[in-house]
Design a protein around this nucleic acid. Structure first.
Lengths: 140, 140
DNA sequence: TTTTATGTTTAGTAAATTAGTCGGGTTTTT
DNA sequence: AAAAACCCGACTAATTTACTAAACATAAAA
């Protein structure tokens, strides 16, 4: 039930981009230094985020990365799904796919995992980057 | 954000014990066969669950395992914590410990993870084994 | 136009974790 | 005594994680 370092790094880096939004592209090295992340590892993360159209890149000198859209349009869930895959506590309740295991029908555990998945999704899809940078404390 | 196989196996095995509650001890091999789990791996899992006082064992011929208390007294969260450790999407918001990272105060991501941890905890601590075996569908 | 700053991409890899297996115990009941 | 069950430590193969290396492509500035 843990987010991987990759997911955490991704969210932190996206928050930095959100803080820098409208100030032009920000080079990966600057973000990596600020957040104490290996810049080469962050490159790989940004590659995935770019392919998912959450950020866009500007090449060449004075280039860097920018959010692909406004901070309030990007939810934490969007970032997590790109970097960690579909949200689901167990594989048999993967979001999107209606795939089920052979024991469906008499599977007594499925209900809990679905409920858990839905609550996790609710939280992650409710909070945007804008929310994170505009409030010091997200109401519990 | 996935439960490990160990955690899933543990919950499934505990559900079987709940179904068998009051019918005397149930041998590990029977549970393992029924749930398609390696019985030697299940032994390791049961060892942890027993040490955590969630189940108790009866040795000798016709022995086996029984829930240590009533099914409604055992929450899914209890099982998950034993097998997966404290519930937390990221280490800096581990439940119980007030441990914080060096960036506390100006950490913008912390709030989301706390909220997420609390929602996960709510779900897992709300559902008991009794709930799982008495309802086919847990209301979403 | 050369230099340099930056992003792009593929490949590799060491450490950790996971998900078990193996092989023997010991204990208790029949 | 024998059978049925639990107890336990060591080992391991596969997978995942978290990077590193290195070369290349592109764009801007000098």
């Amino acid at each position: 039930m843990k987010l991987s370092a990759k997911g955490q790094y991704g969210v932190r880096a996206m928050v930095v981009l959100a803080l820098n939004y409208r100030a032009g592209p920000m080079p990966i090295k600057e973000i990596a230094a600020r957040e104490n992340i290996s810049s080469q590892y962050l490159e790989q993360i940004f590659l995935e985020l770019r392919r998912a159209d959450l950020i866009s890149s500007v090449r060449g000198a004075r280039g860097g990365y920018i959010l692909a859209r406004d901070p309030q349009e990007i939810k934490i869930g969007d970032i997590v799904r790109v970097l960690e895959g579909p949200i689901a506590p167990v594989d048999c309740v993967l979001e999107g796919s209606e795939e089920v295991c052979e024991r469906t029908g008499d599977c007594l555990t499925r209900g809990v995992w679905e409920k858990l998945r839905d609550r996790i999704t609710e939280v992650l899809d409710d909070i945007s980057l804008e929310d994170m940078i505009s409030t010091r404390k997200v109401s519990g």
